[in-house]
Design a binder for these strands. Structure first.
Length: 298
DNA sequence: GTCCAGGTCGCGC
DNA sequence: GCGCGACATGGA
């Protein structure tokens, strides 16, 4: 029997140990994030593509799951690169997250159980909270098609690339967005009125006034975390709930048009529903409300 | 041309 | 606290 101490690195290859029952295909596609650059999901081969700027340079990572999670890089990785790639991917794939209590609660509902099974309830996230915050802002008051286009332009315009290959670019760090400034955002990246919020968040992080990464794995009580997210420009109640989900806090529902129509259709015969109605439906799921809604079958 | 999309913000009451 | 319109962008 082969036992992999993590990370086991050979040239450009990393293996990640996974929790029992982990399915990459389910986790990658459980929500839309896999379609936002610099992620790309290839359903044919079951490969999650991701471009990351590692200490040693911009790297194309191809993540598959023949048995354990296998990460192939398009270049030889130093051990520092491999450690960093592993750290980012373990966070993104939520390999440390314990959802066993949610699974136990799902057991009583077979349809829900089946909806949860492919991903185990793990929703893909980005290596940095900065990237997730920007992407959540890009989902507000627009269509999914435009969200994808905005993320693609942000990466294509400002993302770092390996020498000689500008087609593969990483997500721009806050400094790159801050330096780009409002003209580039307005004329090239075209985030609409979100330009202002995105630029301000990037500037605040770049200047050290805002430490988003410290909110990951912080033991702040959820109400305090909520307050800090809500304070970000362009981040209202819906975006806050989504970001709390990103951070592994599932007790708050993101109230938006999708939730409204789902609850109306499934529980109220298509009639108009109030915010109170929506909350009541998932109330008994306590700290698992977001996941209970997310995987709630039609 | 008009409407609106997985909202947010600032205003007036 | 609550209701209302404006807000950039691009597709229907």
């Amino acid at each position: 029997m082969v036992c992999y101490d993590t990370p086991l690195v050979t040239y450009g290859l990393i293996r990640l140990q996974t929790p029992p029952g982990f399915r990459l295909s389910g986790v990658a596609t459980a929500h839309g994030w896999h379609a936002l650059a610099p992620y790309r999901w290839d359903a044919e081969t079951g490969t999650l593509h991701r471009i990351e700027e590692l200490p040693g340079g911009v790297t194309h990572l191809q993540i598959t799951q023949p048995d354990t999670i296998l990460v192939r890089a398009d270049r030889t990785l130093t051990s520092a690169d491999a450690r960093e790639a592993e750290r980012r991917l373990r966070w993104s794939l939520r390999l440390e997250e314990d959802l066993s209590e949610f699974h136990a609660l799902c057991a009583s509902d077979q349809a829900l159980c089946e909806a949860v099974r492919p991903s185990g309830g793990r929703l893909l996230r980005c290596p940095t909270l900065f990237e997730d915050v920007i992407k959540v802002v890009l989902t507000t008051n627009t269509t999914w098609t435009q969200t994808k286009a905005m993320a693609a332009r942000l990466v294509a315009t400002l993302g770092a690339h390996a020498p000689g290959d500008p087609s593969l670019r990483a997500f721009p760090p806050p400094e790159a967005v801050a330096v780009a400034g409002e003209i580039v955002l307005k004329e090239q990246i075209r985030l609409g009125y979100r330009n202002t919020s995105v630029l301000r968040i990037a500037e605040d992080v770049a200047e050290g006034k805002l430490d988003l990464e410290a909110l990951k794995d912080s033991d702040l009580p959820t109400p305090e975390l909520r307050k800090r997210l809500l304070a970000l420009p362009g981040v209202g109640p819906y975006a806050t709930a989504t970001l709390l989900m990103i951070l592994g806090r599932y007790d708050e529902l993101g109230i938006d048009t999708e939730l409204r129509s789902h609850v109306s259709r499934k529980y109220f015969n298509g009639e108009a529903v109030s915010e109170k109605d929506m909350r009541a439906v998932y109330e008994h799921w306590g700290q698992w409300r977001y996941l209970a809604y997310w995987f709630d079958p039609q």
